[in-house]
Amino acid sequence: GALNVLPESSLFNYDFDTDHLGLLAHDNLLIGGTIRSQSLVYNSVVLLQKGRVTARYNKIFLVPIEEDARLQAGNERQTNTLRFGDVILGVGICYESSFERISLKAVHNGAQALLFLSNTQSPPATALQLRSVQVRSAETGRVALFVGMAGNTSMTDAKGKVVWRMPWASSERRAISVPLYSGLTNAVHFSAQLSYILVAVTCATLVSLLWKGLHRKAERDHQG
């Protein structure tokens, strides 16, 4: 069946264990909310299938103060990919779309499309998040879905261009076919190494300038 996706939602703050959470859904439902796990409360995305949680991602980059004062951050080493049947989806929650690492890690772990669930309800903030999602889409060569509470819910093509977008404050349910891609873009291939290469080039340049400077000084001292 199709995957039903709802946003990271303030309507669904499940303050109980995931055992009970599963009872809420009998369909293929992907939804975000704050979820307790033992004594810790996370901001999570869960995949519910036939009343069971079959995949879960705990938000790694919590919003400073608002979230990190009361929630537990997900482990940075967990993967942010969820498997749905044969499909691997890369997920991020709310402003995690600002972090390049989120989409790079997902794609390195086989993500065929990206999915960002948000609960942001101000027009400028959702517009900004959508822009970040477009960048994540373009750099990874994946179609990205942005799912919001109040507006800007949208799909990009694999080059980051917004294909369609839901109007602000509209209540909509839309059936779509999401194209799935594999393979790595140059940005994904080289982004990890690029910073090391730039540091190496900078160090080599500094050493060479220092060397030349010392050499010239030695020449001048010799002439003088």
Binding site: Q112, M166, S170, V178
Partner: peptide, 18 residues
């Protein structure tokens, strides 16, 4: 990147401005 297939998705936007 290569196109490998499609995933059918129902997207829901609640339309709530809080």
């Amino acid at each position: 990147p290569r196109l490998e297939g499609y995933l059918e998705v129902n997207l829901v936007q609640p339309g709530i401005v809080g």
